[in-house]
Amino acid sequence: MLTVIVILLIVWAILAVVGFAIKGLLWLAIIGIILFVGTLIFALVRRNARRKKSV
């Protein structure tokens, strides 16, 4: 599961960089940032849930 999250974070970061690099694709950068933050929050919530179960 961790591998999938890392791959998604890399893909979203690449989309954001491409969006900022190409002037007409600013919307792609915004979507990339939103998806990056969403995936990061999902991963943190899931990790915290696992820690609470094991304690």
Rank of each mutant, 00 (worst) to 15 (best):
V6C: 07
A29R: 09
I30D: 03
L40I: 07
L44T: 10
L40D: 00
F20P: 09
I34P: 06
I7E: 05
T39A: 14
N48P: 05
A13R: 01
A43F: 08
T39H: 05
I34W: 03
V6N: 04
M1R: 03
V45W: 09
G38D: 15
V37M: 06
F42G: 03
F42N: 04
L8C: 13
L35A: 12
A49M: 11
V37F: 06
A43S: 13
T3N: 04
M1S: 14
I31T: 09
L26V: 05
R47P: 01
R46W: 13
A43K: 08
G32D: 04
L8P: 13
I14L: 01
V37L: 11
G32W: 02
V18E: 02
I41P: 07
L25G: 12
V11Q: 06
R46F: 09
L44F: 10
W27V: 13
A16M: 08
F36G: 12
I10N: 03
G38H: 13
I7P: 00
I5E: 05
V11K: 03
I30Y: 11
A29H: 06
V4N: 15
V11H: 04
A49H: 10
I7T: 11
I22S: 03
R46M: 10
L8T: 14
T3H: 05
F20Y: 14
N48D: 08
L8A: 10
N48L: 01
V11E: 09
G19F: 03
V37S: 04
I41D: 10
F36D: 10
V17L: 02
A43G: 12
L26K: 09
G38K: 12
N48S: 07
W27E: 11
L8W: 15
G24D: 08
V45C: 00
I30M: 05
